[in-house]
Simulated scan of single mutants.
Amino acid sequence: MAELLGPRMYGCSNCRNLISLHDDIVSKTFRGKSGRAFLFSHAMNIVLGPQEDRNLITGLHTVADIYCADCRQMLGWKYEKAHLASEKYKEGKFVLEKAKVVEENWL
């Protein structure tokens, strides 16, 4: 008999607080400060830092750092505004660093 698994989710690597659903991944080809990162359409149980303009690999963006709402570990950032037309698809989306989140099956 096959074991039924719950939905795949990502939690904070420090405290396991639920941060996002696997189905919300938009891209797995992003880079964060600590290496590989994923772009998500939604995130939960987070706190946003102040907005700031940052020169990233793909140009100038207005971003806000993302912190776990429970333990305050920095997880990545949210794209608030893209200054290039070709980057507008990122607006409102979240970059979570692979080293800062863990994938789990929750029942």
Rank of each mutant, 00 (worst) to 15 (best):
T29G: 11
R36E: 15
D65I: 01
Y79C: 09
Y89S: 14
D70Y: 07
M74A: 06
L96I: 03
Y79I: 11
G35S: 04
V26L: 08
L18A: 09
V101S: 04
E52Q: 13
K28A: 02
L107M: 08
N55E: 15
V95L: 15
D53A: 10
E52R: 11
K90R: 06
S41F: 04
N55L: 15
Q51G: 06
A82D: 05
A43Y: 00
I46T: 14
F30D: 06
M74Y: 00
F40G: 00
H22D: 15
K90H: 01
L18D: 12
L39T: 00
V26W: 04
R16C: 11
M44V: 12
H83R: 12
L84G: 06
C12D: 09
S34Y: 12
L21C: 11
E87A: 12
R54N: 09
P50G: 02
L56N: 07
V102R: 05
L75F: 01
V95Y: 08
S27N: 06
R36C: 02
A43W: 02
F30L: 11
E97C: 08
G6F: 01
I66S: 02
L56C: 10
R8H: 08
K33S: 15
G49Y: 04
S13N: 14
V95C: 10
C15S: 06
D24E: 14
L48M: 09
L18R: 08
V95G: 04
V101E: 09
G6K: 08
L60P: 02
R31D: 14
L107G: 13
F40S: 00
N55V: 15
G32C: 07
H83S: 06
I46R: 05
